[in-house]
Every structure is written in C-alpha cells, then in structure tokens.
Simulated scan of single mutants.
Amino acid sequence: MKQEYYPEEVLIEKMERGEYGWLDYINHFSAEWQEEYARYCRENDLEISNVSAAEFVHFKNEQLETAMANGDA
C-alpha cells in the first residue's frame, strides 16, 4: 500500500476535526519527516508516540523560525 501525503492545510483540518493526532500528522506530511522523526526519537531516547511527535513538530517549527531569522528560509 502506497503511503499518502497531504498538504499542511489538509493535515491541520484533520487534526482540528479530531481525525488525526501528531503522529498521524508526521506520517502523512512527508517521507523525509518520517525519517527525521525516527532519528529524533532514537537520538533523544524517546518512544514513537503522539507526545514525542508533538515535541518533534515543535522542534521543526523552532528550526524554521531560526532559519527565517537568519535569512536561510
């Protein structure tokens, strides 16, 4: 079965309706995020869960904000 990925707007709508949690968000955002999240969990000794998924999304948002502040995004 092929993994389906959705635009961020669709994922946000699914979360707002309670259809998806943070782990679903990552799994349907991109293959790259799935790989980064798995590595993030390994490196930080975290279990794959909605809690660590939320931490990862927060981490990615901080990376983006830093990149934008530095003119790299």
Rank of each mutant, 00 (worst) to 15 (best):
M1C: 06
M1K: 06
K2Q: 15
Q3A: 02
Y5F: 14
Y6S: 15
P7D: 02
E8V: 05
E9T: 06
L11W: 01
E13H: 08
E13Q: 06
K14Y: 14
K14E: 15
M15P: 15
M15S: 05
R17T: 11
G18I: 12
E19S: 01
Y20V: 06
G21R: 11
W22G: 10
W22D: 01
L23V: 06
L23K: 01
L23P: 00
L23T: 12
Y25D: 00
Y25W: 06
N27E: 06
S30F: 09
A31M: 03
E32N: 05
Q34H: 12
E36I: 10
Y37K: 13
A38R: 07
R39P: 07
Y40K: 04
C41A: 14
R42I: 09
N44P: 00
N44H: 01
N44F: 15
I48E: 15
N50D: 04
V51D: 01
V51K: 04
S52A: 09
E55C: 04
E55T: 05
F56A: 01
V57R: 11
H58E: 03
F59Q: 11
F59R: 12
F59D: 14
K60T: 07
E62I: 05
Q63V: 13
Q63M: 07
L64R: 10
L64S: 04
T66Q: 12
A67S: 15
A69R: 07
N70C: 05
G71P: 03
